[in-house]
Amino acid sequence: MIEAIWITLLLAAVTTPVLLIIATPIAWWLAQKGSWIKDVVAAVVALPIVLPPTVLGFYLLVALGPNSPLMAVLQPFGVRTLAFTFTGLVIGSLVYSLPFAVQPIRNAFEAMGSRPMEVAATLRASKWDAFISVALPQARRGFLTAAILVFAHTIGEFGVVLMIGGSIPGQTEVISIRIYQAVEQLNWAEAHLISGGLMAFSFVVLMTMLIIDRRFSARTAGIRP
C-alpha cells in the first residue's frame, strides 16, 4: 500500500511541473489571435477530455510498446519499450492531463490581453524579457489552477494507467488501481484507509496552494498582510 501511495505521489510530482513547462508555450501560442490552424490544434489538445481513458490508454500502449515507430526512434538509445514502466506512466499522464494544463493558462493569457506586453515593450523589454517578467506573473492564477488540476487529475487517474501501466507493484501500481483491487478482494478496510487518506491529502494540498497564492499576490502588489 505504501508503495502504491509513493508511486502515485511521485507520478503526480513529476507530471505537474513537466506538463506546466510543456503547456506554457502551447497556451501562449493559442492565446494569440490567429488562423484556423489554432482551432485545429486547440481541438487536438482538448481530445483527452472527450476520449474514454481506455481509448487513450490503448493508443498510448501501441505507441509505447515494442515495434512502434516511436520505439524505433528510441531503439538506438537502448530503449525497447516504455509500456509497463514508470516512464510510460509519466508520458501517459502528460498526454491525459494536457488540456487541464493548457486551458487555464491560455485563459489567463487571454484575460491579460496584449496591453501589458505592449507597455513592457515601450519600457525597453524584449519579447522574451516581457514574457518572463510580465506575462508569467500576470497569468499566475492560471498556472496555479493548472497545477492543482493536473496534480489532482494525475492522482485520480485510472483507465489510462491501467492500460499502459499494467499495475506492477512498486513500479506502476498507483492508488486508484490499488483501491479497485482492494474492493474486488472485499478488503474494505484498506479501501477505506487509502480513500480517506487521499481525500484528506487532496484537501490539504488545495488549501495550502490557495493560501500560498493569497500571500503571494498580497506581497507582490505591495500590501503587507
Binding site: E118, A121, S126, S217, T220
Partner: peptide, 24 residues
C-alpha cells in the same frame, strides 16, 4: 522593434503592471 526605439508611451487607460507595486 519597439523595445529598441527610445520611445515612451502613455496609454489611454492606466496601464500600470498590476502584479507590481508602484515602486515595482
Amino acid at each position: 522593434l519597439v523595445h529598441k526605439r527610445g520611445v515612451g508611451y502613455v496609454f489611454q487607460e492606466p496601464s500600470l503592471f498590476t502584479h507590481l507595486s508602484v515602486q515595482g
